[in-house]
Every structure is written in structure tokens, then in C-alpha cells.
């Protein structure tokens, strides 16, 4: 029987309690207003149960299993991204190389080779992919394709792989174990999304960027931002090597960059005139819709911790 580090176990327990509350509240809504349709809310919460269930299972299984899982997430996200953005038929070979880079990038994580992990995508892949396109020889639309392909790989492979690398950093908080940092960033980012949504829904008045995302308000953003800053300062000492104050800094970073990640992907979807990027996750949309904030928070949080403690 393996032992789960105490603080990580507490966080998992907290998440289960929060989910139970969410399910209870959703059930209460349906009982109180039998005429309203709560299908989407119900699906959303059900999907949360499934996602959390899978995540905790792979995290508890082993580091290797969890790294493979994040590699698979990168694959799903890149696939979804490349399916909605315009690409040319002649880009197929270059796109194939981008997929092939996923196991390689996560292999660097697995063998804990930080130097290679940090340059493989932004140096090698970003330089090689346009070269592969040149070998095909189609120059019409080249600029757009090169831009699309390098940007989508940066977000889907490079950003997301930072979550996996958090697991192989030497453990500095024994009470949280190797999964502490990962649980922290995933929980804070997703909780930030939820908080910004709830604050916006309750008090939202002044729109931030009506052209991109008409539902985003200053009240929602600031409410979420401060909630996460406070939460992070309290939780960080339990799950990460960060102190109380450093935790507040991490919370502010996550609150701010999570919002940016969200609206960047929103802009992509608005440009393509679609609402969701896929329908793999009932009630949420696609993988990209769920991981949007993480593409910004994960690398920023990683380097924040890395700079302060490693």
C-alpha cells in the first residue's frame, strides 16, 4: 500500500467535498425550479467528477503514468487546436512532425533533463517545423501556416509540459510530495476560472473586453483575482515550497495570467466564429476550452517557483 503525502491527500479530500457541494447545489436548483433547464450545469459538474477522478487516479498511480497522461492531454489539445484553425493540405507532413514531438518533449521530462526540456520546443521545433514546410515547397499561405503551427505547438506542447515537469522537480515540501505543485497549479487555475465566473455572474457590470468576450467584467476579474490571491497564500505553504507571501504572489500571477489565457483562446474561437473548440467534455466543450487558462498559468507559475526555490 502506497502512502499519499498528507497535505496532497487533504487537498484531494477538499476537492471531493467541493464537488459534493456543487452536486448538491445543482440538485437543489432542479428541485426548486423544476421548470428551468439545468442540463448544462448538471453535465458540467458530472464532467468535473470524471476529470477529477481521472486526474487523481493517474497522479496516485505513478510519476510515469501521470507524465504519460499529460502527454496525452497535449496531444488532444494540439489535435483540437489544429482541427479548428486553418491549415493547408500541404502542411500535413509538418503537422505530423509536431505530433511526433510530443513523446520526445515528455521524454525529456521523464528523464528529468531540464536543459533539453526548456529548449526543445522553442528552439528546435520552432525552427524545424517551417523547414519541413519548405521541403514540401508550397509558398502560398506559408507565413500563416508557419505562424499557426509554431504557436499552437508552443501552447499545446511546451506550456502543458510544464505541468508535468513540476512533478520531477526535487521535492522540497515532504508533506505534499511530488504531486503537491501540480495539484496546486491545477486547483488554483481551475478555481480561478470558477471564481471569476461566479463573481462576474453575481456582481458583473463593467465589461473589460466586450469585443472578445462579452461576459468578462472587471468585477468578475478582480473578484476572482483577490479570492485566488488569498487562497493561494493560505494553501501554498501546505502544498509547495513557497512561503505565505510568495504564495500570495503566485496567486496574483495565476489570477492575472489565467484570465489572459482564457481570453486569448476566446479570441481564437471568436475569429473562427465558433463557440466551443470541440465536444469531448460534456458541458465544457473541448479540451482546449478547459485548458485555455493553464496554457498561461502553468509555465509562468513553474518559472516563478523555479526562480525562487531551485
Amino acid at each position: 500500500m502506497m502512502s499519499i503525502p498528507q497535505n496532497s491527500l487533504y487537498l484531494m479530500g477538499t476537492v471531493f467535498v467541493l464537488l459534493l457541494i456543487a452536486s448538491g447545489v445543482s440538485f437543489m436548483f432542479t428541485v426548486r425550479n423544476p421548470d428551468s433547464d439545468y442540463t448544462e450545469l448538471r453535465q458540467r459538474i458530472q464532467s468535473w467528477w470524471v476529470m477529477i477522478g481521472i486526474l487523481f487516479t493517474v497522479l496516485l498511480a505513478s510519476k510515469g503514468v501521470a507524465i504519460t497522461f499529460f502527454a496525452f492531454l497535449s496531444f488532444l489539445m494540439l489535435k483540437e487546436f489544429l482541427s479548428i484553425v486553418p491549415t493547408r493540405m500541404t502542411d500535413r507532413r509538418a503537422i505530423f512532425w509536431a505530433y511526433a514531438a510530443i513523446p520526445v518533449q515528455y521524454f525529456w521530462v521523464y528523464v528529468e533533463w531540464y536543459g533539453m526540456f526548456i529548449i526543445f520546443v522553442p528552439i528546435f521545433l520552432v525552427l524545424i517545423l517551417p523547414m519541413r514546410m519548405v521541403l514540401v515547397g508550397e509558398t502560398r499561405g506559408f507565413i500563416r501556416s508557419a505562424g499557426v503551427l509554431t504557436w499552437t505547438t508552443m501552447l499545446s506542447i511546451f506550456s502543458i509540459s510544464h505541468i508535468a515537469f513540476l512533478m520531477v522537480l526535487p521535492v522540497k515540501n515532504e508533506a505534499a510530495g511530488y504531486m503537491g505543485l501540480v495539484l496546486f497549479i491545477l486547483f488554483m487555475t481551475q478555481f480561478n476560472d470558477v471564481c471569476q465566473y461566479v463573481w462576474g455572474k453575481k456582481f458583473g457590470k463593467h465589461k473589460i473586453i466586450p469585443k472578445v468576450s462579452p461576459n468578462k467584467t472587471w468585477e468578475g476579474f478582480l473578484g476572482g483575482f483577490f479570492t485566488i490571491t488569498v487562497c493561494a497564500s493560505l494553501v501554498a505553504p501546505l502544498l509547495t515550497p513557497l512561503s505565505f507571501l510568495q504564495g500570495a504572489g503566485a496567486g496574483a500571477l495565476i489570477g492575472f495570467s489565467g484570465f489572459i489565457g482564457d481570453v486569448v483562446i476566446s479570441s481564437v474561437k471568436r475569429d473562427l466564429q465558433i463557440k466551443d473548440s470541440g465536444n469531448l467534455i460534456p458541458g465544457h466543450g473541448g479540451v482546449l476550452d478547459r485548458l485555455d487558462s493553464l496554457t498561461y498559468t502553468a509555465p509562468l507559475f513553474f518559472h516563478y517557483v523555479y526562480y525562487l526555490h531551485y
Partner: peptide, 18 residues
């Protein structure tokens, strides 16, 4: 989207959502 994943005359399957 399937014509992009595996078009006529190609043997290489490239993953795309369809």
C-alpha cells in the same frame, strides 16, 4: 476533416478532429 486526416492517394494518417 477526414479528407485532411487521410486524403486520397496518401498513406500517412495525420490526426485531426473530424
Amino acid at each position: 476533416g477526414l479528407g485532411r486526416a487521410l486524403p486520397k492517394g496518401e498513406a500517412l494518417l495525420v490526426p485531426f478532429n473530424c
